[in-house]
Design a protein around this nucleic acid. Structure first.
Length: 199
DNA sequence: AAGGGCTCCAACCGCCAGCGA
DNA sequence: GTCGCTGGCGGTTGGAGCCCT
Protein backbone atom coordinates (compact mmCIF):
# COMPACT_ATOMS: atom_id res chain seq x y z
CA UNK A 1 0.00 0.00 0.00
CA UNK A 2 1.65 3.21 -1.14
CA UNK A 3 1.42 6.33 1.00
CA UNK A 4 -1.63 8.40 0.13
CA UNK A 5 -0.08 11.81 0.62
CA UNK A 6 3.19 13.59 1.08
CA UNK A 7 2.47 13.91 4.79
CA UNK A 8 1.93 10.19 5.11
CA UNK A 9 5.09 9.59 3.13
CA UNK A 10 6.95 11.98 5.40
CA UNK A 11 5.69 10.12 8.45
CA UNK A 12 7.25 6.94 7.15
CA UNK A 13 10.53 8.25 5.77
CA UNK A 14 11.76 10.99 8.09
CA UNK A 15 13.24 10.65 11.51
CA UNK A 16 11.34 12.13 14.46
CA UNK A 17 11.92 13.06 18.05
CA UNK A 18 14.25 15.41 19.84
CA UNK A 19 16.83 17.31 17.84
CA UNK A 20 20.51 16.79 18.54
CA UNK A 21 23.05 19.63 18.67
CA UNK A 22 24.60 18.19 15.53
CA UNK A 23 21.29 18.44 13.71
CA UNK A 24 20.83 21.98 14.98
CA UNK A 25 24.20 22.93 13.60
CA UNK A 26 23.48 21.42 10.19
CA UNK A 27 20.11 23.11 10.06
CA UNK A 28 21.53 26.51 10.97
CA UNK A 29 24.19 26.18 8.30
CA UNK A 30 21.63 25.19 5.68
CA UNK A 31 19.37 28.09 6.60
CA UNK A 32 22.29 30.48 6.29
CA UNK A 33 22.72 29.33 2.70
CA UNK A 34 19.13 28.89 1.57
CA UNK A 35 17.26 31.24 3.88
CA UNK A 36 14.55 30.58 6.45
CA UNK A 37 11.77 30.15 3.92
CA UNK A 38 12.42 27.30 1.52
CA UNK A 39 12.06 24.58 4.10
CA UNK A 40 11.96 21.68 1.68
CA UNK A 41 15.24 22.83 0.17
CA UNK A 42 16.72 23.50 3.59
CA UNK A 43 15.74 20.04 4.77
CA UNK A 44 17.15 18.27 1.72
CA UNK A 45 20.35 20.28 1.38
CA UNK A 46 21.17 20.07 5.06
CA UNK A 47 21.49 16.31 4.78
CA UNK A 48 19.18 15.90 7.74
CA UNK A 49 16.66 13.11 7.66
CA UNK A 50 13.97 15.58 8.67
CA UNK A 51 10.96 16.93 6.82
CA UNK A 52 10.69 20.63 5.97
CA UNK A 53 7.97 21.18 8.51
CA UNK A 54 10.13 19.79 11.27
CA UNK A 55 13.04 22.03 10.24
CA UNK A 56 10.79 25.08 10.18
CA UNK A 57 9.45 24.33 13.63
CA UNK A 58 12.89 23.80 15.08
CA UNK A 59 14.14 27.06 13.61
CA UNK A 60 11.18 29.15 14.66
CA UNK A 61 10.92 27.79 18.18
CA UNK A 62 14.52 27.27 19.10
CA UNK A 63 17.28 28.34 16.72
CA UNK A 64 15.97 31.66 15.47
CA UNK A 65 18.12 34.67 16.48
CA UNK A 66 16.85 37.09 19.16
CA UNK A 67 14.62 34.44 20.62
CA UNK A 68 13.68 34.73 24.29
CA UNK A 69 13.23 31.58 26.30
CA UNK A 70 11.53 31.16 29.65
CA UNK A 71 11.01 33.81 32.33
CA UNK A 72 7.87 35.36 30.97
CA UNK A 73 7.62 38.67 32.78
CA UNK A 74 4.52 40.02 34.51
CA UNK A 75 4.11 42.56 31.73
CA UNK A 76 4.29 39.88 29.08
CA UNK A 77 1.86 37.71 31.01
CA UNK A 78 -0.56 40.60 31.29
CA UNK A 79 -0.29 41.20 27.56
CA UNK A 80 -0.91 37.55 26.80
CA UNK A 81 -4.02 37.59 28.96
CA UNK A 82 -5.34 40.74 27.34
CA UNK A 83 -4.52 39.66 23.81
CA UNK A 84 -6.05 36.24 24.37
CA UNK A 85 -9.18 37.96 25.61
CA UNK A 86 -9.30 39.87 22.36
CA UNK A 87 -7.99 37.36 19.84
CA UNK A 88 -8.74 33.95 21.28
CA UNK A 89 -6.34 31.12 20.46
CA UNK A 90 -4.60 32.97 17.67
CA UNK A 91 -1.19 32.24 19.05
CA UNK A 92 0.80 33.44 16.08
CA UNK A 93 -0.86 36.83 16.24
CA UNK A 94 -0.28 37.07 19.98
CA UNK A 95 3.33 35.97 19.56
CA UNK A 96 3.82 38.56 16.86
CA UNK A 97 3.21 41.26 19.44
CA UNK A 98 5.64 39.79 21.97
CA UNK A 99 9.18 40.33 20.71
CA UNK A 100 11.28 37.18 20.80
CA UNK A 101 8.44 34.94 21.88
CA UNK A 102 7.13 32.08 19.76
CA UNK A 103 3.56 31.01 19.23
CA UNK A 104 4.46 27.58 20.59
CA UNK A 105 5.88 29.02 23.78
CA UNK A 106 2.88 31.24 24.36
CA UNK A 107 0.53 28.38 23.61
CA UNK A 108 2.37 26.17 26.08
CA UNK A 109 2.44 28.91 28.69
CA UNK A 110 -1.25 29.48 28.29
CA UNK A 111 -2.15 25.81 28.43
CA UNK A 112 0.07 25.05 31.43
CA UNK A 113 -0.41 28.19 33.52
CA UNK A 114 -2.80 30.87 32.40
CA UNK A 115 -5.76 28.76 31.33
CA UNK A 116 -5.89 27.17 34.76
CA UNK A 117 -5.69 30.54 36.47
CA UNK A 118 -8.32 32.03 34.22
CA UNK A 119 -10.63 29.16 35.02
CA UNK A 120 -9.98 29.01 38.76
CA UNK A 121 -9.40 32.62 39.71
CA UNK A 122 -11.92 34.03 37.27
CA UNK A 123 -9.41 36.54 36.06
CA UNK A 124 -11.29 39.36 34.41
CA UNK A 125 -9.43 41.88 32.38
CA UNK A 126 -10.56 45.45 32.51
CA UNK A 127 -10.99 45.67 28.78
CA UNK A 128 -14.49 45.42 27.38
CA UNK A 129 -14.66 45.38 23.62
CA UNK A 130 -17.63 46.51 21.58
CA UNK A 131 -18.33 44.80 18.27
CA UNK A 132 -17.38 46.82 15.23
CA UNK A 133 -18.56 46.74 11.66
CA UNK A 134 -15.07 45.91 10.39
CA UNK A 135 -15.20 42.17 10.97
CA UNK A 136 -14.75 41.31 7.30
CA UNK A 137 -11.63 43.42 7.09
CA UNK A 138 -10.24 41.47 9.99
CA UNK A 139 -10.73 38.24 8.09
CA UNK A 140 -9.06 39.61 5.03
CA UNK A 141 -6.15 40.71 7.11
CA UNK A 142 -5.83 37.45 9.00
CA UNK A 143 -6.87 34.37 7.03
CA UNK A 144 -6.59 32.21 10.11
CA UNK A 145 -9.64 33.94 11.54
CA UNK A 146 -11.86 31.89 9.32
CA UNK A 147 -10.39 28.66 10.63
CA UNK A 148 -10.74 29.92 14.17
CA UNK A 149 -14.44 30.42 13.71
CA UNK A 150 -14.79 26.89 12.46
CA UNK A 151 -13.08 25.40 15.50
CA UNK A 152 -15.35 23.68 18.05
CA UNK A 153 -15.14 26.51 20.56
CA UNK A 154 -14.90 29.23 17.99
CA UNK A 155 -11.44 30.13 19.14
CA UNK A 156 -12.64 31.04 22.60
CA UNK A 157 -11.48 29.42 25.79
CA UNK A 158 -13.91 28.36 28.46
CA UNK A 159 -12.71 31.22 30.61
CA UNK A 160 -13.98 33.63 28.03
CA UNK A 161 -17.60 32.69 28.25
CA UNK A 162 -19.98 35.48 27.44
CA UNK A 163 -19.88 37.86 24.55
CA UNK A 164 -17.40 37.02 21.85
CA UNK A 165 -15.04 39.90 21.38
CA UNK A 166 -15.13 41.14 17.82
CA UNK A 167 -12.99 44.07 16.90
CA UNK A 168 -10.78 45.40 14.19
CA UNK A 169 -7.27 44.23 14.90
CA UNK A 170 -6.03 46.77 12.44
CA UNK A 171 -7.00 49.47 14.91
CA UNK A 172 -4.09 48.31 17.03
CA UNK A 173 -1.74 46.30 14.91
CA UNK A 174 0.10 47.26 11.80
CA UNK A 175 0.57 43.84 10.22
CA UNK A 176 2.36 45.30 7.26
CA UNK A 177 5.55 45.76 9.25
CA UNK A 178 7.80 43.52 11.26
CA UNK A 179 8.68 46.14 13.83
CA UNK A 180 7.98 45.35 17.42
CA UNK A 181 7.55 48.79 18.91
CA UNK A 182 5.45 49.10 22.01
CA UNK A 183 3.39 52.02 20.77
CA UNK A 184 0.54 49.67 20.01
CA UNK A 185 0.48 48.67 23.67
CA UNK A 186 -0.24 52.23 24.66
CA UNK A 187 -2.99 52.46 22.04
CA UNK A 188 -4.37 49.17 23.21
CA UNK A 189 -4.48 50.12 26.88
CA UNK A 190 -5.85 53.52 26.03
CA UNK A 191 -8.62 51.89 24.03
CA UNK A 192 -9.49 49.64 26.94
CA UNK A 193 -9.70 52.57 29.32
CA UNK A 194 -11.92 54.46 26.90
CA UNK A 195 -14.24 51.51 26.54
CA UNK A 196 -14.50 51.17 30.29
CA UNK A 197 -15.26 54.85 30.63
CA UNK A 198 -18.28 54.37 28.39
CA UNK A 199 -19.85 51.98 30.89
C1' DA B 1 15.34 5.20 48.23
C1' DA B 2 11.58 4.29 45.22
C1' DG B 3 7.74 4.82 42.53
C1' DG B 4 3.60 7.01 41.21
C1' DG B 5 1.48 11.28 39.81
C1' DC B 6 2.00 15.78 37.90
C1' DT B 7 3.91 19.60 35.14
C1' DC B 8 6.06 21.60 31.40
C1' DC B 9 7.59 21.96 26.86
C1' DA B 10 9.55 20.22 22.45
C1' DA B 11 7.86 18.11 18.69
C1' DC B 12 4.36 15.93 15.87
C1' DC B 13 -0.16 15.85 13.53
C1' DG B 14 -3.90 17.24 10.68
C1' DC B 15 -5.96 20.76 8.28
C1' DC B 16 -6.10 24.62 5.29
C1' DA B 17 -4.67 28.47 2.11
C1' DG B 18 -1.68 30.16 -1.41
C1' DC B 19 0.70 29.48 -5.44
C1' DG B 20 2.56 27.68 -9.62
C1' DA B 21 2.25 24.30 -13.35
C1' DG C 1 -10.41 25.24 -13.53
C1' DT C 2 -7.77 21.66 -11.11
C1' DC C 3 -4.17 19.46 -9.06
C1' DG C 4 -0.10 18.90 -6.38
C1' DC C 5 3.28 20.95 -3.48
C1' DT C 6 4.60 23.81 0.23
C1' DG C 7 4.30 26.67 4.24
C1' DG C 8 1.72 28.18 8.23
C1' DC C 9 -1.40 27.49 11.90
C1' DG C 10 -3.69 25.57 16.18
C1' DG C 11 -4.40 21.27 18.63
C1' DT C 12 -2.43 17.40 20.71
C1' DT C 13 0.91 14.13 22.45
C1' DG C 14 4.90 12.02 24.66
C1' DG C 15 8.66 12.08 27.56
C1' DA C 16 11.92 14.15 30.80
C1' DG C 17 12.22 16.05 35.11
C1' DC C 18 10.15 17.37 39.43
C1' DC C 19 7.42 16.64 43.56
C1' DC C 20 5.13 14.16 47.03
C1' DT C 21 4.20 10.30 49.80
Amino acid sequence: MAPKSMEEKAKNEFSKGAWTSEEDKKLAESIQIHGPKRWKTVAVKSGLNRCGKSCRLRWLNYLRPNIKRGNISDDEEDLILRLHKLLGNRWSLIAGRLPGRTDNEIKNYWNSQLSKRVNTDKIVTTVTIQPTKHKENDDELNPTNQRQRESPNGGQEEGNSGTIPIFDTNEFFDFSTETFGLEWVNNFIKFGVEQNDLH
